[in-house]
Amino acid sequence: MRKSIPLRICLVSGIVMIIQFFIPHRYSQTVYNYTLDWLIVSGIFAIVIGLHSNFHLHITRIVRKRKGWGYNVVTMAATLSMAFIGIAFGIGADSLFMKIYRNIEVPMDATMFSLLGFFMASAAFRAFRAKTKEATVLLIVALIIMIGRVPLGYFLWHRFPELVEWIMMYPNMAAQRGIGLGIGLGMAAMELKIILGIERGWLGGAGD
């Protein structure tokens, strides 16, 4: 019962939604809209579990005074203050909430991602040393793309940007599409396996 009921719920809800896709009727559309709402409402409680897990982690570290516990206080304080400010005073364009978002979260987020530029470049230097023909191709294409995306590329050769566009549009897109088709086929196969109860990994972790 502990496993058979969830497997049946998964099968029935999956089959109903697949059948619904092929029925162009307003009742079918209503089923779709209701299911979407139901998914959102039930999903809210999953967020509660996520928040509990997060708070539990930080509070445990603070209570046990683990190394660097002060940083956990920063995270907890920031989370609670931001949530309180947003919920209590609103999230309008000129609200304090959005000011914090624009002047604390956005700059830090952008800087964090920009840091990755440095680390990607240094990691790539170590990892992609042109030891094989394939690695050389990768490096050359990366260089072409980088140079072609800035005014220097046009300055060196006026058709550089066109070359970059061509690489992006044809050889790059061909490989992306090949990989995408593989992913699509894999996803469809895995989705069918889950609905039909062949893949049961998602049941794990809560006892038999």
Partner: peptide, 25 residues
């Protein structure tokens, strides 16, 4: 807790499977 997981998994897959086949393949 498997019951809501089963519902969201099944319904999400049911919604996405035809679209995956259509758009992804």
């Amino acid at each position: 807790s498997r019951w809501p997981i089963a519902f969201s998994l099944g319904a999400s897959i049911g919604m996405s499977l035809p679209l995956t086949l259509q758009a992804g393949i």
